[in-house]
Design a protein around this nucleic acid. Structure first.
Length: 564
RNA sequence: UGGCCGGUAGUUCAAGUGGUUAGAACGUCGGACUUUGACUCCGGAUGUUGCAGGUUCGAGUCCUGCCCGGCCAGCCA
């Protein structure tokens, strides 16, 4: 398996964006500079989809010796909050990126308004007294050209005066708007005199009450890019039709230096996942998850609590690359990167999730042996640890069957297996309760097999994980399944919320952990041997989250058997 | 219905200006190894490159037509 993208340097890695950057550089554009930006609106939490954009923008800048700034696109006072400014910065740093600078579109409000006046003076913008409904009606349709507003030919003086009074808060919200004067018959709807400023008597989290007009995205974005010296403005596919307007705005302003260049790419979609803010908010508000940082959420905070390492997210984003086609990546691919990272870094520990008691009949009464166990076979420097072994242990319920089918080579009556880092044991009897369920195993051990090897060279087919009963630490462990049962929730036109998996989490109580795990700090991810990677909860020391399971051949065998 | 952008294994991406049997990853199947049924290693399978024509010695790459998908008619971004 090769998770390293084929080439990570600017010269070898190729996609249409990097090719364009290289071409621009070769043509001497932008004085050889490369500058990108990540422009979130501070109105919600970042999710895995944003991670792709973040990685792309920062990676391009880094590969071409450029810089990438974080810009808050805070032009809509009604939806934005200061708290998100903090949260978003934290998440970006957690992902592993440090913006060259943190800037705000709202810092450019004065400049943007000045430019709007320039446009008015050039006869390229006007104040329209139509309301939103009338404007919409007059915009025409895909096949019908729009009709000019009755206010389209006001004098420059009147427009200047009206716009000034809009800024002063003289007019009601929605009663007027400043529009670009382009072409109401344009084949591109974005060019049919788009709104540049709308009246909002709203409190802005940064500029307070000093503004009564706010620029639209189209008026703010390109100019913000230009002000900052952005060279390559990367955005998602749906802005494709806005590119002509982006260029139009910049072409009609007196800008120093080269105009930034907008390039669109496909946003990230994942199977069994939704990245729509509306859907995620509904999940949170409806109590279907525990909040924005629920480990089932595709938010960066959710993934963090779940135990997804930022390195894996970055490797994933780099691997999937960029395209101009909207597609949906399999979540298994992301999980594979998570496993690859943890396999190399996570310490191995033993934990029994569904305990079954084992009594070693020939174990010396009261004896405790401290065994040496390897911390990480992938990393010798991780060393070893001591694990206590006694005559009463817990093993996994699933590791024993009274009547084992073919290909089940764990413990069964009369069978011998190895306990990891411990001894060979043989099951000589089992105790069942009145319902027939196995409640205890009686076994013997071979003292000669300490450490896990038999001097006579005999082999066992299985190695089981275990925990000494008296030394075990109790904990709750949460197993997570897909948040949505459907691989493409809502794709068939149904409500994605209908596809929410009612069994997306399974809380296991009374799990038995090896004693060392009690001292693990929150947030740390370890491998519970033979089970998967598990993240210690950030706040609750008695709680673990399954990040992702190990690949499980036995599960595949069972699945195949069920199927047929 | 108009415009724009797309269509390459199950999935996501590769295939310098047209040039041998269209590659890789994940998934899947088989094998080796193994004190994790993990990891690692080896190997197999899956493609009418959306369809139909055309240009050419030669087309996934160029041309034409058609089909399918996405986006666009917020004073959201």
């Amino acid at each position: 398996m090769n998770h390293t993208p084929s080439g990570t340097t600017a010269n070898s890695r190729t996609d249409f964006i990097r090719e364009r950057v290289r071409a621009d550089l070769a043509a001497g554009r932008f004085d050889g500079r490369v500058q990108t930006r990540f422009p979130p609106e501070p109105n919600g939490y970042l999710h895995i989809g944003h991670a792709k954009a973040i990685c792309l923008n920062f990676a391009i800048a880094a590969e071409f010796d450029g810089i990438c700034k974080l810009r808050f696109d805070d032009t809509n006072p009604e939806t934005e909050e200061a708290t998100f400014v903090e949260v978003i910065q934290d998440d970006i740093r957690w992902l592993g990126f440090e913006p060259a600078e943190v800037v705000f579109a709202s810092d450019y409000f004065d400049q943007l308004a000045d430019w709007a006046i320039d446009l008015i003076e050039a006869g390229l913008a006007y104040v329209d007294d139509q309301d939103a409904e009338a404007m919409s009606l007059n915009r025409g349709s895909f096949t019908q050209p729009g009709t000019d507003s009755p206010w389209r030919n006001r004098s420059v003086e009147e427009n200047i005066d009206l716009f000034a009074r809009m800024r002063d808060g003289e007019f009601a919200e929605g009663s007027r708007a400043l529009r670009a004067r382009i072409d109401m018959g344009h084949e591109n709807m974005q060019m049919r005199d788009p709104v540049l400023y709308r009246i909002r008597h709203a409190h802005h989290y940064r500029t307070g009450d000093s503004w009564h007009v706010y620029p639209t995205y189209d008026w703010a974005h390109g100019q913000s890019d230009a002000i900052e010296g952005v060279t390559h403005s990367l955005c998602s596919l749906e802005f494709d039709s806005h590119r002509r307007l982006y260029d139009w705005c910049l072409e009609h302003l007196d800008l120093p230096g080269d105009k930034p260049e907008q390039t669109e790419f496909a946003r990230l979609n994942l199977t069994h996942t939704m990245t729509s803010k509306r859907v995620l908010r509904t999940l949170v508000d409806g109590g279907l998850v525990d909040g924005w940082d629920d480990p089932r959420m595709p938010t960066l905070r959710g993934l963090k609590r779940r135990g997804y390492p930022p390195e894996a997210i970055r490797a994933f984003c780099s691997h999937i690359g960029v395209a101009r086609v909207n597609g949906t990546h399999e979540i298994e691919l992301l999980e594979s990167f998570v496993r690859t990272h943890h396999n190399r870094h996570a310490l191995r520990r033993m934990a029994v999730l569904k305990p079954l008691e084992v009594v070693i009949e020939n174990w010396p009464e009261g004896q405790v042996v401290e065994l040496d166990a390897i911390n990480n076979p992938e990393d010798d420097s991780a060393g070893t640890r001591k694990v206590p072994f006694t005559g009463r242990l817990f093993i996994e319920r699933d590791d024993f069957m009274i009547d084992p089918p073919k290909k089940f080579f764990r413990l069964a009556p009369g069978r011998e297996v190895r306990l990891r880092a411990g001894f060979y044991i043989t099951c000589i009897d089992h105790v069942t309760d009145e319902t027939g369920e196995v409640v205890q195993l009686r076994c013997t051990y071979d003292p000669e097999t300490r450490g896990g090897q038999a001097p006579d060279g005999r082999k066992v087919k299985a190695t089981l994980h275990w925990v000494a009963a008296e030394h075990a630490v109790d904990a709750d462990v949460i197993l997570y399944g897909r948040l949505f049962t459907d691989s493409h929730p809502g794709a068939d036109g149904t409500d994605p919320l209908d596809a929410v998996n009612p069994d997306s989490r399974q809380v296991l109580t009374g799990c038995k952990l090896e004693p060392m795990l009690a001292d693990t700090p929150g947030g740390v991810v370890v491998q519970f041997e033979r089970l998967g990677y598990f993240a210690h909860d950030l706040d609750d020391p008695g709680l673990w989250h399954r990040t992702v399971g190990l690949r499980d051949e036995w599960a595949n065998i069972r699945k195949r058997r069920v199927k047929g």
